[in-house]
Every structure is written in C-alpha cells, then in structure tokens.
Design a protein around this nucleic acid. Structure first.
Lengths: 259, 259
DNA sequence: ATAATAGTGTCTTTTAGACAATATCGA
DNA sequence: TCGATATTGTCTAAAAGACACTATTAT
C-alpha cells in the first residue's frame, strides 16, 4: 500500500481549518543620540509600530482602525512564516533584514475578531539609518518609533500588547545572553559603545563600571581586540577597537556558572 | 466608524487559508536503571514515538503508514495549540503533563503531502512510571521509547526527523540552562541523582566529578539543602537531600559570566 | 592647565580545579 | 575489615570587585 494511494483516498476536509495564518514583526532599532564630540553615545531601544488606517487597500473599513500595531501580514501558501516575515519587513522598510528571529505563536481562540487566525511573531533588528526609508503602506496611515517604556501605554490592536511584552522580554534576554548586540554596532566598536547598548537593558555594575567593563571585554571569548586599530569618536584619547568573533556563542550552564 | 461595522464589511476570504493546524509533542522521559542497592542510578534520556498504523479510525489508508512519528493531532478551533498539545498528551498517555513547552513551528511548503499544514511543536517531560499507562490509539499501531541516540536512525514520518533533532537540542539546552531537571527527580534528591540527570546531556568535568559537584550543589542559588534530611538510597553512608527552590531561575549573562 | 574618557596597578575576596584524605556503614 | 559512596581539607591558580592612580589629547 503506497503513500500515493493513501494520499488519493485522503479526505480533504476532516477538520475545520484556520481562517488565516499571519506573520508579525517587532522591528527594533537603537536610537543613538550623539551626546557631543569625543563622547560615548547614549542609546535608546526603540520599537517600530504602524498606525492602522481607516480604510484598507480595497477601500473597505479596516479592522482595529486607528490603533497602533506590529507590521505584518498574511503568509502565502508557497512560503514559510519566516519567509513571509522577511518579505513583509522588506516591503515595509526596504530592509533585507540584518537579524530576524521567530519567538512565539499566538493562537488563542478569539484573539482576532475576523476569525481563527494564527500569528507567528518575529523580532528584527534594523540599524537606525535603514529605517529612514520606512514608509506607510496601504494598510497603515503612520509609522513611528516608540521607546520600549512608552510603547506599552499605547492603544494597541488585537493582542499586540501581549506580543510586544513578549518581544521586549526576548530581545532584552537575547542582548545579554547572545551576541545579537553586534547588530546595533559597527563592525569595529569601542568598549563604551558596546556598554551603551547593554545599558539599555541592564543595570549590572559589572557592565556599568568603565574600569570593570573595559577590562572584562578583553576576556570575552566571542570578542577580539583589533590590534593597532584605534578611534577618537568616543573620546579625545585614542580608544581600542574590538570586533565580534565569527564563532558561535557559548553560554555557561547554570550548574557550573559562577554566582 | 466602529470596529463592529468594519467586521461586518470584512471580506471573509481574501487569502488562501491553511489546510490544517496541528500540535505535535516530543514526550521525553528518563529511564532510571537501578544499578544495585546503595548505588546512584544510571539514567538514559528517552523519547516516546508512535508507529503510524496502516488504516486510520475511519478505515482509510493512513498517510506515512508504518513510519515512526511524534504523537500529535489537529488543533480544534476552540483551543490554542498549547491546549491541544496538553489534550493530546493526556489522550495518548493519560498524563496531565508535568512540564510542557512550545519550542517551534514547522510550516515549510510541502512538508506534509496532505496540503498546507502548520505544526506547532512542543516537548513534554513525563516521569517513567506515568508512561506505563501509555496506549496505542486508533492512528497508532505501536508506542515505544527510544534513546535520543538511536531515535535519529529510524524511518521517521513527514519532517519529524528535523523536529526531533530540534527537540533534542532544546531539551539538552534546557536541562543545563534551566531547572527543568527537577521534573526528572523526586522532590528531594541527592547530589548524585541530579548528577545522573545532567550526565545524560553533558561531559563537563565540573558535573562529572563527585567532589566538585557535591560541593557545587551547595552554592547554587536555586537549590536548597533540606536540613537534617538524609537518605541511604544511593549509598551506605547517609546522604544529604536537596530540593529546588520555588524561585525563578537565573542565568548569568554572557558579558558577565566567567569563562 | 583642564576636563573628560580610557586604561593600569594593586590589593582583597571569592571561586575553580585538583588531589589527598577522612567518614560512614552494610555486607 | 572491605568496598563503595559521600564529604572535607588543603593548596594553587584564576577571576571578581573595589579603589586609587596614570595616560591621552582637544580645547
């Protein structure tokens, strides 16, 4: 009995099927406010949201109109949810993503008034300057960046409050436990630039202290000193540049880490 | 213009929709082979699979018949994928899960010959004795435990090879980086019992060495000594018992961990 | 010279890692 | 007493944490 025969006799409609399958993207960037010449930057972690317009592309009244929401859209049958996220991010911001990662599925019954709709949630990291090319598309009347503190006070569409809370928790975790921070930095960076990124998500004194962190960075196995390369962009004294190694990232298991 | 009106004018079929939404579960257990009286146990991490039967409940020829697969099934419209996994696990093994966690979505076009089917993958941890009640249901002609080493040599249905590889990677990671190991242990346990669990997934000398690990366990912030409580089940000399604290689990960020 | 950032010297405390030694207790 | 597991003693090397101090350079 072949698989082919089984497939032919397979009843196509044994179960009710979902009314839609979508991919949403939490697009993060870091706004780097230049404090002044010869000073390390101050950084703020921002999330890009769209304001849902009152009419959609077909001229119909839009659902959840006027509310802020994550960009996203329906997955096509010939692509995966991840591919759809990549495509939508490019349509939305003209960016072929630097970093895109799936972090959750949202499928609670009743989460979308249009029916049984399953959403795959991803987060993306996009450099600030790339977002200048962002645009409001047919379904959006506005696009804006919000700090991760203010974003949760907005009137958000669907269950995007919950999705955004999860996204923020995930990127905060990943910034400290993986090397994604590299996506917010230039190829070569000073200890104080990396420090500025990490300061957006931690108060650990080992990160906050100049002395401690400028020493610590030299011992991190996934970061290497670029010998001889210095810059004056963060201070008058020429400052050592570092880069992330290409290797995989290692995390210390909890049973052997130091506490 | 209200949300209600927008909903009424919403075109129900603007996109092709998926042909199915399923939840699969990788059920892990640890077989604890009692080596002898007054000895610590030897443990093996096992995964439960079902063998797909040739005919399904309706008497039709089954797809991917004869192959080994993860238990799972279609999500109902009134439940989430997580709820479905919980329900299916209970139907399959009579177990209200001890630990169940979502770890991935599988939606590549063509992954299931029956059509556009999206699968939510979960892993569960079930104590060995609970699995004695496991049963083969209508769609399965056999249910069996495989060690994580041998399981990848089987002829596996659909893209379950990939899903299982991911599941094994996730549980190995979680055993070392979270406190899920507690689900494989009694409430109170000796250092050598915890060690036996961790030995199924690591060769770290700090875990392997009796002296090192029996000292280390006392310093772990998420494990507490049960003062005065001793047992002789692992050795002739009465041995200190420990328990996991109720707190949340802390992992050291890579930028401040010791290397 | 000053102010600001980067980086070093040095001391103390804690932890890791290794190896030897002791403790317990049923058989 | 023997044998196996648990646990402590002790030493060394490495790292963390704290604080003072030096280095650099545009202004």
């Amino acid at each position: 009995m072949s698989n082919k025969e089984a497939l032919e006799s397979y009843d196509q409609t044994p179960f009710r099927t979902p009314d839609g399958y979508t991919s949403d993207i939490a697009v993060f960037t870091i706004l780097s406010s230049k404090v002044g010449e010869f000073k390390p930057p101050h950084m703020t972690l921002m999330l890009m949201l769209i304001k849902r317009s009152f009419y959609n592309a077909e001229g119909q009244v839009n659902i959840e109109a006027g509310k802020w929401a994550l960009p996203g859209g329906f997955v096509q049958p010939d692509e995966s949810g991840f591919d759809a996220a990549k495509r939508e991010l490019e349509e939305e911001t003209n960016v072929n993503c630097i970093h895109l990662k799936h972090f959750g599925v949202y499928d609670k019954p009743g989460r979308d008034p249009r029916g049984w709709i399953i959403t795959n949630a991803h987060y993306a990291i996009v450099p600030e300057h790339e977002l200048s090319r962002r645009k409001a598309n047919d379904d959006a009347e506005d696009v804006k960046l919000f700090s991760v503190e203010e974003v949760l006070n907005l009137d958000l569409a669907f269950d995007h409050q919950e999705i955004i809370e999860d996204a923020i928790a995930v990127i905060k975790h990943d910034l400290l436990h993986t090397t994604v921070a590299k996506n917010f930095l230039q190829k070569q960076f000073t200890y104080s630039e990396l420090q500025a990124v990490l300061k957006t998500v931690t108060n650990d004194p080992a990160v906050l202290s100049e002395q401690a962190f400028s020493r610590k960075i030299k011992t991190l196995p996934f970061i290497e000193e670029v010998s001889g390369q210095k810059t004056q962009r963060t201070s008058k004294t020429p400052t050592q540049l570092y880069r992330f190694a290409d290797d995989i990232n290692i995390v210390r298991p909890i049973y052997t880490a130091r506490y």
